[in-house]
Amino acid sequence: MSNAALKTPRSIVYLSAGFVIFWVIIASFPFFWTLWGSFKVQGDFFSKADWRNALWGTRTIVETGGPFTGAGYHGAWVQEEFWRAALNTFIVVFFTVVISLTLGTLGGYALARSGARYAFWLLMIALVFRAMPHITLVSGYMLPFFQWNLWGHLPTTIIVLVAINQPFTLWMLHSFFLNIPKDLDESAKVDGCTQFQAFRHVIIPVMWPGVITTGLFSFLLAYNDFAVTSMLLSESNRTMVPAIAGFLGSTFEEGNVMFAVAAVVSATAPLFVLVMFFQRQIVSGLTAGAVKG
């Protein structure tokens, strides 16, 4: 294959490499800049005089004595008790993922194995539900939840997030189960298993790659949600994303913007770790729906 015709002209190599470098900078620079800036004081991060102050930390040295300061993190985590929000996020995300995977596996399996017309309609309805802006549903919840005193609690939010998550989970797991050969559970049924036993003993052991991938996306949905958590949680139960929005609304005094910057960096860190460990699953999950139609 190594003939002259295959050799790419120099200009195209440079152009394409240059474009990729350009994209990598656009994609990553904002994060590094914010991470770097979160250890500075506000006078450097938003510099009236010279943006290069943020690089050297001119004001930070004047104000704190060193080029780096953890004041933003201290303010956010200790003074404004951001750890509460982090704990709430952990609770909400954990239970949302576990419950939606449990319900989604059962439902997705049933949809994949039933050829009936109503199964198709359920999938179509799920697609419509998936497209609906979450905030439109929230406006349906608010009044009844106020009336029944359900508003503001973590369990309410978890159940709502599970439900909003279901259409997507069903679609994804449905396509994963379609890939597991039907013969597997059919033969178990021939051997005398009920449908549930076949599912329990034959399907569950082989389904984990699909479940983990789906779980990653459920995690992202619950972790990244703003519409539901900001409307349905009371101030003391707030998760991280609405808490960050709260930092901005109430505290625009000197220095307090840095609390929000530090909180933003703290909330992004778990996502970095997630991508680092599960890059392959995320990529395969994104393409699964596309390739299988």
């Binding site: 990729v20 994209w23 990598v24 994609a27 990553s28 904002p30 994060f31 800049w33 914010t34 800036g37 991060f45 938003f46 510099s47 009236k48 943006w51 943020a54 992202l220 972790y223 990244n224 703003f226 994303v241 960050i244 929005a245 901005l248 913007v257 929000a260 910057v261 933003v264 909330a267 992004t268 996502l271 970095f272 997630l274 991508v275 680092m276 890059q279 995320i282 990529v283």
Partner: peptide, 30 residues
Amino acid sequence: PTIFVSLLPMIVTPLIGSLILFWMIDAQGI
């Protein structure tokens, strides 16, 4: 590594991603 970096803008919480850019485009930001 390139795919890793490319995934970041999509994976980041939308509100957080927009805040990060918002601070950068501030009249006093970079």
